[in-house]
């Protein structure tokens, strides 16, 4: 399925469940997502991890409504609890089956996103391991000067921005040297297809969602 259409469908779902209060719909979405992930060979361990990750915030939201809510407190508590899980599992159907390169290809080829945005973000994204290391280096450099740089220290962010400025210029120059010209046409080796099928799935998905919200008597 075309990644951009998949993302669009998931965004529609996420928006819609943000404004509805149907526990069983949230649960149904989680189940559908698990089935989808299972079909795509997601490991049980990963699925278990997805259950653990949102647990704390889910409990937080649950207890807030249960103790300090108004109206039908129990209903709202469970709506929010299941909603988080719906966000995380539907999100996982995207992030665990699609990589950022496929999304960038689709946005560039099917939606005419200027290539400087697609490849600029990819270039930065591919530096993630270096960035994680650099944050450690900045912190260590501070400690060696006797200064602890915490997440509220302006210097920590200042240093990070200095490095970002430096790297962004290096990368932009390197990409230019590899023939990249802003706003110039390029050819595409990996073809990102956008079939009628994708639109049909999107349409069916959105209709299915409306049936879930307005037609099926969940309670």
């Amino acid at each position: 399925m075309n990644p951009s259409i998949k993302l669009l469908l998931l965004l529609v779902i996420a928006l819609e469940i943000s404004f509805t209060m149907i526990i069983s719909l949230n649960v149904a979405l989680v189940i559908l997502a698990i089935i989808y992930l299972g079909l795509h060979g997601t490991k049980l361990k990963t699925l278990a991890w997805l259950l653990v990750v949102p647990l704390l915030p889910a409990i937080g939201l649950w207890s807030t409504q249960y103790i300090n809510g108004s109206g039908d407190k129990t209903l709202m508590a469970w709506v929010l609890f299941t909603r988080i899980y719906a966000f995380v599992f539907t999100g996982a159907t995207f992030t665990l089956t699609t990589n950022i390169l496929q999304l960038a290809d689709a946005l560039e080829q099917n939606w005419h996103l200027p290539s400087k945005f697609a490849y600029g973000v990819l270039a930065a994204y591919n530096l993630v391991p270096k960035i994680q290391h650099e944050v450690k280096v900045i912190r260590a450099a501070g400690l060696m000067r006797g200064q602890q740089l915490s997440f509220w220290s302006p210097q920590l962010y200042f240093k990070a921005i200095l490095v970002s400025i430096n790297w962004s210029q290096n990368l932009a120059q390197a990409m230019a040297s590899h023939g990249f010209v802003e706003d110039a046409p390029r050819t595409h080796y990996r073809h990102s297809a956008l079939h009628a099928r994708d639109w049909i799935i999107l349409g069916l998905g959105i209709i299915g969602m409306q049936i879930g919200v307005f037609v099926i008597p969940w309670h």
Binding site: K116, F117, Y119, G120, V121, A123, A124, Y125, L127, V128, I131, E134, V135, Y157, A160, I161, V163, S164, I165, W167, S168, Q169, L171, A172, M175, A176, F180, E182
Partner: peptide
């Protein structure tokens, strides 16, 4: 927007 601007804000986002 220049390419280096796009990379810069993406890098800052990741750093933060």
């Amino acid at each position: 927007w220049y390419l280096s601007d796009v990379i810069l804000i993406a890098l800052i986002g990741i750093f933060f």
